[in-house]
Amino acid sequence: MEVRTIKVFTTVDNINLHTQVVDMSMTYGQQFGPTYLDGADVTKIKPHNSHEGKTFYVLPNDDTLRVEAFEYYHTTDPSFLGRYMSALNHTKKWKYPQVNGLTSIKWADNNCYLATALLTLQQIELKFNPPALQDAYYRARAGEAANFCALILAYCNKTVGELGDVRETMSYLFQHANLDSCKRVLNVVCKTCGQQQTTLKGVEAVMYMGTLSYEQFKKGVQIPCTCGKQATKYLVQQESPFVMMSAPPAQYELKHGTFTCASEYTGNYQCGHYKHITSKETLYCIDGALLTKSSEYKGPITDVFYKENSYTTTIK
């Protein structure tokens, strides 16, 4: 009895394709271990004539594949690729409408935090270190965002349907971005203890939790000093293409032309909904596939993004 075979390709990165001759009487799992086709788990399936010449994702289970996976995804987590594939199996079914010149995501599976993050990423200057993220990001900007969303979920250790947080998501993504040249110098002034300067680099240099107003941050924000008295913390120097200011959701007025974009969060910790506000020729609110415009805006804002380049204080 002759062994019926077909020729397929296996890959971990969709760049390096490895030619395989597979036995049609055995499952993919018996031949390769966990195997995925377009995100779908085909591990328990036997090869079919229609699979001839198709590319299958496999887990990096030998040295060659491990090197290829690390170079593309910059992670050695053995569960990463499987999590990416199972997320992709959902995100490829989502709709990605162009809204006001940006790629958004039609609401499904509690994905409003991903839509808000995706919209924000198209408006701030950011370059990702893992080629996987950078490639998928370019495709997302062009309207094909399924891979990018699935990668975000995998890097953030999230599953489809789980509630997510924009600030946490951005923080994970910033860790995989090139923020080497970003720098922030802060000064804390206390009447009792004097003053202390701190220099922050990388992710810490672009994120701040405690106030939404970048102007206020430049002037000074009140913080408790270690001595128990009130101290003032203010920005001395900022070198970065953008800054992200966050605070627990509270009524906040966004003035046209003073910011790049913002995240609105309605609801409580267990259950809520994100919308995205962007400042173009007027203010726009993007909620999944829905767009509304207004000249002014007041609502429960939790993150505001500002364009920056270089700032030095005039406070002496």
Rank of each mutant, 00 (worst) to 15 (best):
N61W: 14
M207D: 03
F70C: 10
S295T: 13
Y28C: 07
Q216G: 07
K95G: 09
K298D: 11
Y172M: 11
Y155C: 02
R184P: 02
R66N: 11
Q98F: 08
A115N: 07
T159H: 15
V12Q: 08
D180H: 10
F242T: 01
C190P: 02
S240P: 01
Q197M: 11
A115W: 01
A40Q: 14
Y72A: 12
K219P: 01
E52K: 12
E308L: 09
S25R: 12
T192D: 14
F217G: 03
N16E: 06
C190L: 01
H74Q: 11
V236L: 08
F217L: 15
E71Y: 07
E162A: 09
D41T: 11
M170A: 01
S25I: 09
T103W: 09
C149S: 06
L37F: 12
A231F: 01
N129Y: 07
Q270W: 06
N16T: 09
E239Q: 12
T103Q: 04
V188A: 06
L291P: 06
A247D: 04
L121E: 02
C261L: 01
Y172E: 07
T103P: 03
F128I: 04
N16Q: 09
T11P: 05
K293C: 14
V21G: 11
G194V: 01
V99Q: 08
Y208H: 12
T260N: 07
T199E: 13
Q251A: 10
R184G: 15
Q222A: 09
G299T: 00
A154R: 02
G164L: 01
M209W: 15
L151Y: 05
D135R: 08
P241R: 06
F56D: 05
C285S: 12
L179A: 04
Y234T: 10
H273N: 00
L173N: 01
A146S: 13
M209H: 15
V42Y: 14
I277L: 07
K158A: 06
Q222R: 11
K183E: 07
D287W: 01
T169E: 04
K201C: 10
D287M: 02
E162W: 03
G161A: 06
V67C: 15
T199F: 06
V189G: 04
I152P: 00
T292R: 10
H176N: 07
C193V: 02
E215Q: 08
E2H: 09
I152G: 02
T292I: 08
Y252P: 02
M209L: 12
T43W: 07
V160K: 03
G164K: 03
G299A: 08
M24Q: 13
F128Y: 08
K127F: 10
S104I: 05
L186I: 13
L153C: 06
A108T: 08
N89L: 11
L59I: 11
V185N: 02
H18T: 08
T91M: 02
P47V: 08
T19W: 13
F128A: 01
P47L: 04
N309Y: 10
T64H: 09
S240T: 05
C261Y: 00
Q30P: 07
Y208K: 00
H276W: 09
L118A: 03
A136I: 03
V189Y: 10
L133R: 03
I286N: 00
V166Y: 06
L114R: 03
H276C: 10
Q270E: 12
I301T: 01
K44G: 14
E168G: 09
Q175E: 09
R139T: 11
Q270L: 10
Q20M: 11
T266Y: 08
G29L: 08
Q122F: 04
T314Q: 15
D287K: 00
T27M: 13
I152A: 09
Q230N: 12
S181R: 14
V189R: 09
T10K: 13
A115I: 05
G194P: 07
R141D: 04
K54D: 11
A140N: 02
A140V: 13
T278V: 13
K316D: 15
P78W: 15
G82N: 10
K218S: 04
C156V: 06
Q20I: 10
D77S: 10
Y269V: 15
A117W: 02
L153H: 03
K158T: 02
T260S: 07
N309F: 09
Y284H: 10
Y265R: 04
T192G: 12
C182A: 09
M85F: 08
S104E: 05
Y84T: 03
T64F: 09
P300E: 11
Q134E: 10
V188C: 09
A40V: 14
T226N: 13
T226F: 09
H273T: 02
K275W: 00
K95H: 14
S50H: 11
A40C: 12
F242S: 00
V221G: 01
K183C: 08
L81W: 08
C227L: 00
L283V: 14
P130D: 04
A289K: 09
T314H: 15
S310W: 09
G257K: 05
T258I: 07
N14E: 15
N268G: 15
M26P: 06
N61D: 10
Q134P: 04
A142T: 15
F305H: 00
A132P: 04
K298Y: 15
V58M: 08
Y84M: 04
M245R: 00
Q197K: 12
F80P: 03
I152Y: 02
L133N: 01
G267W: 09
V188R: 08
P249T: 01
P224R: 15
C227K: 01
N16F: 06
L65A: 10
K233P: 00
L235R: 01
T211G: 08
D287F: 01
Y252D: 00
G272Q: 03
T103D: 03
T292P: 00
H273A: 00
P241A: 11
P97M: 15
T232K: 08
T266N: 09
F148E: 00
Q197W: 06
V221M: 10
T169N: 03
Y172G: 09
Y208E: 08
L290Y: 15
A205L: 00
T282M: 12
H18Y: 08
G267S: 12
Y208D: 06
A205N: 00
K255F: 08
T159L: 09
T258N: 10
Q175K: 09
G220F: 02
G39H: 09
K275M: 07
L153F: 09
M245A: 02
V243K: 00
T75E: 09
C261E: 01
L133Y: 01
T64Q: 14
K219C: 10
L81K: 05
H276N: 06
A115C: 14
Q230V: 13
M170Q: 01
C156K: 03
A117Q: 01
Q238L: 01
Y274F: 12
P248L: 15
G33W: 03
N16Y: 09
Q20P: 07
L114A: 05
T258Q: 13
V188K: 11
D13C: 05
F9D: 07
Q195V: 15
K229H: 10
